[in-house]
């Protein structure tokens, strides 16, 4: 389904943000990508739909190499890749419905988009998705009137409106409180499984990743250094990815592990 081959990205300074990353997602599964801030998780996801241009390597989605498509081809390929963002990235002055329908922008004409004149099946699909994410009745609210959790659920509906072959999810819960985070993750993973959509999910929260993902990739300094099931994500594996630390859940408050956790939301926001 998705094959990443030797994907690399270096910014002008010459530092490699993404260093020769290869892996394959052969079945519809939820793949969590974990790793310290600056490990290149966000760059990896953005290199796949080329919001960031990779410097070398290729990303192949269902047999098509996305990395050497021209701009028209790239737009076609992006239609098949839904994306969900840390800051939700809804168009704030538009209504919930317009935001959800914008997932179909690649399929309608300019004039239809301008007049908000989408095909009936798109509209009923949008209503269904809003219902599935628990926002039925919200269609005429403006996006800037919603809470963070509600916005992210609109973000999920927008991505799924594309009927994507691949979901790219960039830190979906980093701006949400723990309870809302779990709710959003649950909806996201349920829908991904139900629609058999392979999902690449950046996440800094290791327990959430272990809870919800089918497979975990670990990154450090732009390199892929771990690939396994959540069960294989042992303390040794975490030490490999994040460095030496006391990973036991029962580690005492005031120990380095707790401080690390307390810091993580800011770190994630800074990414």
């Amino acid at each position: 389904m998705l094959k990443i081959e030797a994907l690399s990205k270096s910014y002008t300074a010459g530092v490699a943000a993404l260093d020769n990353v290869s892996f394959e997602v052969a079945e519809p599964q939820v793949v969590a990508i974990i790793g310290p801030s600056g490990a290149g998780k966000s760059t990896l996801i953005r290199c796949i739909n080329r919001l960031v241009e990779p410097t070398a390597g290729s990303a192949i989605l269902n047999g098509e190499n996305v990395t050497n498509l021209n701009s028209a081809g790239l737009r076609k390929a992006r239609r098949r890749m839904g994306m969900i963002f840390q800051e939700y990235n809804l168009v704030e002055r538009l209504t919930v419905m317009e935001n959800v329908l914008s997932g179909r922008l690649g399929y309608v004409s300019f004039w239809q988009a301008w007049r908000r004149n989408y095909p009936p099946e798109d509209i009923s699909n949008a209503f269904k998705l809003l219902d599935r994410v628990g926002l039925s009745g919200f269609q005429d609210q403006r996006a800037d009137a919603l809470s963070g959790g509600q916005r992210q659920r609109v973000g999920i509906a927008r991505a799924l409106m594309q009927k994507p072959d691949l979901l790219l999810v960039d830190e979906p819960t980093a701006s949400l409180d723990p309870k809302t985070s779990r709710q959003v993750m649950r909806i996201l993973v349920e829908l991904a499984h139900e629609l058999s959509t392979p999902t690449l999910l950046n996440i800094h929260d290791v327990p959430l990743a272990k809870n919800f993902a089918d497979r975990v990739l670990g990154m450090q300094d732009g390199k892929l250094i771990f690939d396994g099931t959540p069960d294989e994500l042992t303390e040794d594996a975490l030490t490999l990815i994040y460095g030496e630390e006391d990973w036991k859940p029962e580690a005492k408050a005031g120990s380095p592990a707790e401080q690390e956790n307390a810091d993580s939301p800011e770190q994630a926001a800074a990414v």
């Binding site: 990235n89 809804l90 922008l105 690649g106 988009a113």
Partner: peptide, 23 residues
């Protein structure tokens, strides 16, 4: 960011303008 999200849906530049920029 709003513009980036619209671009990620595969929308062409004019559509990015009317959805991501104009509002």
């Amino acid at each position: 960011q709003q513009m980036e999200a619209i671009r990620a849906t595969g929308a062409s530049f004019p559509k990015v303008l009317i959805y991501g920029v104009m509002p």
